[in-house]
């Protein structure tokens, strides 16, 4: 079963704290890549560098910023392939990065 883990929100604290968090993320990512659970994923640049294109109107409009202004912005994602939701939850409980993670099942047909 494939899920997308969506990492959201930012850590508080200075550079030192940030380095510590990144080191933890590297270890975590290494562990689950090695086990075969992580099949893809990336860290994203901040939403201030995002561009959104709205296609609902007569012509596409281009807007500076993310598609939704939320308190918890998306900082990265991983695609994981694990037996079930409990296995995904188990992984996510030890995630050392962002303060929130959404687990979204991927359509598989």
């Amino acid at each position: 079963m494939k899920y997308m883990l969506i990492f959201a929100g930012e850590h508080e604290g200075g550079e030192e704290k940030m380095a510590e968090v990144m080191a933890g993320v590297d270890t975590w990512w290494g562990k689950y890549s090695h086990s075969g659970a992580i099949v893809g994923g990336e860290r994203l640049q901040p939403p201030s560098r995002a561009t959104t294109v709205r296609l609902g109107g007569a012509a596409p409009t281009i807007v500076d910023g993310p598609f939704a202004e939320t308190k918890e912005s998306i900082g990265g994602f991983a695609i994981v392939d694990v037996p079930d939701l409990d296995a995904a939850l188990e992984m996510v409980k030890s995630w050392p990065g962002s303060p929130a993670v959404e687990i979204r099942p991927v359509w598989e047909d």
Partner: peptide, 8 residues
């Protein structure tokens, strides 16, 4: 949700 999110 149980089926699609694979709740065991």
């Amino acid at each position: 949700k149980i089926v699609d999110a694979a709740i065991p």
